[in-house]
Design a protein around this nucleic acid. Sequence first.
RNA 1: GCGCCCAUAGCUCAGCUGGAUAGAGUACCGCCCUCCGAAGGCGGGGGUCACACGUUCGAAUCGUGUUGGGCGCACCA
Length: 585
Amino acid sequence: MPLSQTDFKIHFTDILQQAAVQVALPDTTVRIELTRTKQASHGDYSCNLAMQLAKSLHKNPREIAQLLIDALPDSPYLEKVEIAGAGFINFFLKIGAKQQIPHIVLQQGSAYGRGNLGDGKKVQVEFVSANPTGPLHVGHGRGAALGASVVNILSAAGYVVASEYYVNDAGRQMDILALSTWLRYLEIFGADLEFPTNAYQGSYVRDMAQLIEEAHGDRYVHPAELLLEHIPAADSDIVIDDEEKLNRLIANTKKILGQDYAYIHNFVLTEQLGDCRNDLMEFGVEFDTWFSEQSLFDGGMVAKAVALLEEKKCLYQQDGATWFRSTDFGDEKDRVVQRANGQFTYFASDIAYHVNKFERGFDQVIDVWGADHHGYIARVKGAINALELDADKLIVALVQFAVLYRDGVKVPMSTRSGEFVTLRELRHEVGKDAARFFYVMRRSDQHLDFDLDLAKSQSNENPVYYIQYAHARICSVIAQWDGDNGLLNDADTDTLTSAIELSLLQKLIDFPDMVESAAKELMPHLIAFYLKELASEFHSYYNASRFIVPEEPVQQHARLALITAVQQVLCNGLTLLGVSAPEKM
RNA sequence: GCGCCCAUAGCUCAGCUGGAUAGAGUACCGCCCUCCGAAGGCGGGGGUCACACGUUCGAAUCGUGUUGGGCGCACCA
């Protein structure tokens, strides 16, 4: 039978399908879907097909169930089928099939759990993509942890995955950072100026100014008076708002520095990007591509994308600006792509960026965005549709905010005034493993209460330690046994018959299914929950049985083979989440 | 005001293509180390699945409405 070893669910679905074709034929709208049962008395897999067909066949569900069962082809993996309740069909997996699982896991090793759902399709996952204008904070951390886990999971599910970070190196924010740094640099040389409240306040700006000073001395010093040109003094009658003031400061800076402005701009960008990359690397998050927004402008892609929209008659002029008719594509209002001052908006480069993604031939493009960006989905998809590309290829995964709690109270955070907790601080406080796990242990579309004390605690309350402890415990047992692992590969596992052993075996069988579900739904938390359950069953087993029993070598090898398989699956699952599987703790 | 998301045990959350007695963890109470790691296990109490109506053989799950939260509604990114 051409059956990929552990896909019992698919196998049973398949034979039930064959039976259904004979019996019911008819109702092709009903999907045959088996689910794992909650109770052992209900077998291993269950299906409600008979109840779903009851209406269209005008028959009693139990009667239909019996017909289906009678038509069921033989299967070497099927112990028995039962009709239960209102008409459930319960499948019991042959115990011998379950007992083979440790061997399959040990043989496949780190590959156990991998599947072929993706069938080699190309998927791109873009995540984090924070402005390189300062350190990453804990909000970015959740996107990073989620995105990285999704990449791992999709990859395990048979997709060819490309990870990407979109670098917003073109906008006004970068100019503000360059300005901020230069002002701090001037301060080092004693310039007496008022540092704008809406410029970047963080101490890292001073650090960068210091670096410039150390490398180039006073080379970039210019008289401060030039900077204040066209900017009314505080006591002047002419009042301009703070943002406009910043714009004029930027313009003056560019004029004063001339060619040197590019140096400052480039320096701060390189510094921040380097810091960001380093921070993420220590978090276990790496990218295949760092994609520059500026490159879209340099290559004329932005102008081209806008021109394309013009060709499709999707643009119009109003109040000096160029608008995209996104309302024609489901958005709630039209959006500006080119401002009255001639500059393209962020939205314009974002359109170009997505066009570029589509041109690169991905079968699916996944954007991981903060939940505050949900309003952008309609306009980006609208633009993709307007350009007659397939917007269904784009999936936007929204990540809700994470709120830190320390001593039971919310840690205050506000982006302005630079009073936020950085990802780096979080990592240093709770460690990489706990941070990665906590970020993905909730559904990403739910708010996350991040309990710092819990994440730090080295106790049973901490789910990370609970799982890692199970892994370390197994390693410890195996080390104590000190036998030849080859013996486990050949172990006779027929003796694994207790309730907890059968439950553990089934749990191991479930893992590939779990990975597939997590990939389909882009939900790493499924893996996190699965691992907690697997660890829990192992801990129960540990307390209920002894593994090192030399007087009963058959039992001993069977049990050791089972827990070694558990160890492997714990490790494979933790790896998907970017969490280490330590041998000792 | 309009749009999106959410409401499940004291707390933090799973479960949601409609199915069998709604589950974990934590907290609380009681047990288990002459024994492979007690960073563990076992048992107990704890629920109007926000509320109302509807769809159906069947609703925590789907629909409508109400209430209460979060977020978004820039020629910012």
